[in-house]
Computed example of a mutant assay.
Amino acid sequence: MSHPDGDKHHFVPRSYLRRWADAGEVSVATIATGRRARGGVRVTAMKRGFYAIDSYNTDPNAVEKAFGSVEDPGKRVIDKIVDGRNGDVWPLPLDDRVALGAYVALQALRGPEQRLLMQSLQDDMVESETRFVDEHGAAKWFANHGLRLTEERARGAWDSGVGDGKPLVVIDALYHAQRIANDSDTVMNLFLSRYWTLVRFDTPSLITSDAPVSLNDAHDERGAWGFQNAPSISLPLNRTTALVFGAVYPSQSEGETEALLNGAFDREVEGSDIWAQRLNARTAHNAEHELYFHPDDAALISSELRTRNDS
């Protein structure tokens, strides 16, 4: 299916990218090559037709439009945070905390890197199950899944379904949208079960990327952590503000859970050079292909931040 020129689907919201823009443009550093350029917010962090579901009965922009119901409230909370002064808006009231948690959960799930992860997990599973069938037979595999067949019939069913490396499911826009719909509440609740730290800098200090929700520190193997067990999760909110989620808090009582949700364990701290270095290193390490920064902040992108050389 070909997608009209209007189907510019942003996997990072334009309203978010504008926080690093000058006259509607952001600077872009390509991780694989180190190349730097400037690009308009409208054409940055975008893939044409990325969320389009191939159906004549479906608006190709329907999925991205649906994101607006989460993006808009989250944007308003971020506006309130970055425009506020120290101590004025933090900790957030519960409604704002939930809105921002939903926004971060959506951003964590919507990008191309998540679709690649889904594909990689499926490929690993098919490879593992294929090894089992090769070693123990297709009949044994089906028996383990509650279906008794002769080896001949089982082998035919296996080859028809997943033989020759065939995918179990097609990892496309429809599948991705379904995963976002199914997983968003769970991921949001995992964010809400952590304590939150707001880091404010006096001067522009932060970059962002095409995968701005970071689960791994620069010294971690990429993909080492998930939303539940990551020691910390970070998201730059603009050039001078970052949100850091601490470890999942093991609430022992209903009262502790209520206190957590109402921000009793949250804190607001003054950004330092150490904070900036760690957050920017995390951003670069977790990025998929591109780093984004304000045109005046080129000095924040150094060779030390280019931790990956794959494209």
Rank of each mutant, 00 (worst) to 15 (best):
P4N: 11
G6Q: 10
D7R: 02
K8M: 12
H9P: 09
H10W: 06
P13M: 01
R14M: 13
R14C: 05
Y16L: 04
Y16V: 05
Y16D: 01
L17N: 01
R19K: 08
W20S: 02
W20Q: 01
A23C: 05
A32M: 13
R35L: 04
R36D: 03
R36H: 06
A37T: 15
V43C: 05
A45T: 04
G49S: 06
I53K: 02
D54K: 07
A62S: 07
V63L: 00
E64R: 01
K65R: 08
F67M: 00
G68V: 00
V70L: 15
V70M: 12
E71G: 02
K80W: 14
R85D: 10
R85C: 04
N86C: 04
G87Y: 07
D88K: 11
V89P: 00
V89H: 03
W90G: 04
L92C: 12
D96L: 08
R97K: 15
A102F: 11
Y103R: 04
P112E: 08
Q114S: 14
L117Y: 08
Q122G: 03
M125P: 00
S128Q: 13
S128Y: 10
A138C: 02
W141P: 00
G146I: 13
L149I: 07
L149N: 00
R153Y: 11
R155P: 07
A157P: 02
A157W: 12
W158I: 00
K166E: 01
P167T: 03
L168I: 15
A177T: 12
D183Y: 10
D183S: 12
T186P: 00
T186L: 09
V187C: 09
M188L: 15
S193D: 13
T197Q: 09
T197R: 07
T197P: 01
L198N: 03
V199W: 09
R200F: 10
D202Y: 10
S205R: 03
I207D: 05
P212C: 03
V213S: 01
S214A: 15
H219L: 08
E221G: 15
G223T: 13
G226M: 00
F227D: 03
F227I: 03
I233K: 06
S234G: 05
A242L: 08
V248N: 06
P250G: 07
S251E: 14
E254S: 09
E258M: 11
A259H: 15
L260E: 03
L261T: 04
N262V: 06
G263I: 12
F265Q: 08
G271E: 05
Q277F: 12
L279F: 14
N280R: 11
R282E: 15
N286W: 11
A287F: 07
L291V: 04
F293G: 04
D296I: 08
D297M: 14
A298C: 08
S302E: 06
S303F: 03
E304V: 02
E304S: 07
E304Y: 02
L305V: 09
T307K: 11
T307F: 03
R308G: 06
D310S: 06
